[in-house]
Amino acid sequence: MIALAIAQQTVREALRRRVMWIFLICGLFLISLGPVFGFLSPRDSQTVLRSLGLAAILLAGLFITIVTCIYLIPVEIERRTIYTVLSKPVQRYQFVLGKFLGGFATVFVNIALMGIVFLFMIWIQEHKVPTEMFQGVIMTFFQMMLLAALTIFFSTFATPVVNFFLSFGIFLVGNLSTVTESLTTNRNGVVRIVGNVVHYLLPNFGNFNIQNSIIHPTTEIANQNVYVAQNVIYAVVYSAVLLILAILIFDRREV
């Protein structure tokens, strides 16, 4: 209940941030460019629309998630609104949870909006909405949920600027899972250890990008549904762990 009240308040504040709307509009603009590019290359029009759309959702979602979640807690401390909130019967874990839920809901609304527009474009062009396209949007959404949890985790101890580079950097490295995986079998011991740590400890963002298999049907994953489910569970569990850590850190933090 309390966490929900905080979440609702958080969404309200987040939706007021102009920078979020700019990224949303950019995302929607890119998605709507799909048919234009498709028209320019009629042979691959389906691939162009699909890949451009998913990439736009990912890119806009990435920036929206980071710029939204990076400030949720620091701004409360900086503006000292946290004093009045935490002096009410609000436990610190409820505060962190509320902030996460609020950030998460904001990201959800944005991705849902872009997703609907994207799927609508596909429907116009293909007269159907393939399951994989829907799954692509869902996967991006859970990837962003994980990123939101990561960003909120960092925001309990890092400044927004440091947080930006940390979250962004880990998102990039986590997307290079094929590269980091190859490091785990490197002949150099040090590289192998670092590779293992990076590959298994950092969130594996790369697994959420099923665009490749969707866009190029030749690289089909054995069972798409199982694969999606696995990654959704991965995102939920990993996010939960990050939130627990965030709460443990925030519990000891002076405001």
């Binding site: 209940m1 309390i2 009240a5 309200r12 504040e13 000292r80 609104t81 004093y83 009410k88 019967p89």
Partner: peptide, 20 residues
């Protein structure tokens, strides 16, 4: 300091919710 997206009423309502 307050959340400046809110009215005086909304702010009190929000704090009231924190007291359930």
């Amino acid at each position: 300091y307050f959340y400046d997206s809110m009215s005086g009423w909304d702010i009190l309502d929000f704090y009231g919710r924190l007291f359930k």
